[in-house]
Computed example of a mutant assay.
Amino acid sequence: MHCTLPSPLGTLYIAASDDAILEVDFRDDVMPLSPPASSLLQAACDQLSAYFDGRLRRFELPLAPQGTPFQHGVWQALQTIPHGEHRSYKDIAESIGNPRAVRAVGLANGRNPISIIIPCHRVIGAGGKLVGYGGGLERKAWLLQHEAGQKESGR
C-alpha cells in the first residue's frame, strides 16, 4: 500500500505494510496524488502534516525499515536525536559503540528509507557543515531550520 502527500518540500511517497511504515521518500518526478488506503497511511499523513504545520515534534508510528543490523542500529540512534537538535556522524558512531565507523554511519544514514520520521536530516558533518541528504541539501537545511524555529518558539 502507498499514498502520496503534498508537503512544503515537495511530494512525499509513503509506503506501508498492513502494520508498519516501510518508506517515506521525496519524489521529484510528477506523481499523481493518491489518498491513504489504510488507517496506518492516514495516521502517517496526519502526523507528517502536523509536523510540517509545527504541531508535532515526535512521531508515533510503527516502523519497519528494511536494512542490515548495522543500519538498524544507526536508524535507532537517529531516533534518539531530540527535535530541534543535531548530531555529527561521529556522535552517532560513538553512540552505537563503534567510534571508528563514521563513514559506515554516513552510508547507513544515506540509506534510511523513512525520511523525516527517522530523522537522518539531523545528522551533520564535522564543524556543523551540511553534508549528504538523499532529499537534497536544500531540504535538509529547511528541515533543520523548521525544527530550530519550533524549539526557539517553544512549540
Rank of each mutant, 00 (worst) to 15 (best):
F52E: 09
F59C: 10
G136M: 08
A43I: 00
Q42F: 04
A15V: 00
V131F: 08
A15F: 03
G134E: 13
H121S: 06
P36H: 02
G97A: 03
M31Y: 10
M1K: 08
M31V: 10
W142K: 07
Y51M: 02
W142D: 11
D46L: 13
G106S: 11
L22M: 12
R103M: 14
D53S: 15
V24K: 09
G128Q: 10
I96Q: 13
H86T: 12
I92A: 02
P82K: 08
P99E: 05
I81C: 03
A104E: 09
L143N: 06
S49W: 00
T80V: 01
L130Q: 05
R122C: 12
G125P: 06
R122Q: 15
H72W: 04
I21V: 14
M31N: 01
I14P: 10
I81Q: 02
G125A: 11
V24Y: 02
L61H: 08
L144S: 09
K90F: 01
A44Q: 04
L22A: 11
R139I: 14
Q145H: 14
V74I: 08
S38C: 07
L107E: 15
L130I: 14
T4I: 10
I117M: 06
G128V: 10
P65Y: 02
S49E: 13
R57I: 02
L33T: 08
F70V: 07
D19G: 03
Q150M: 09
R27Y: 05
A101E: 13
A44W: 03
R111F: 03
P6T: 05
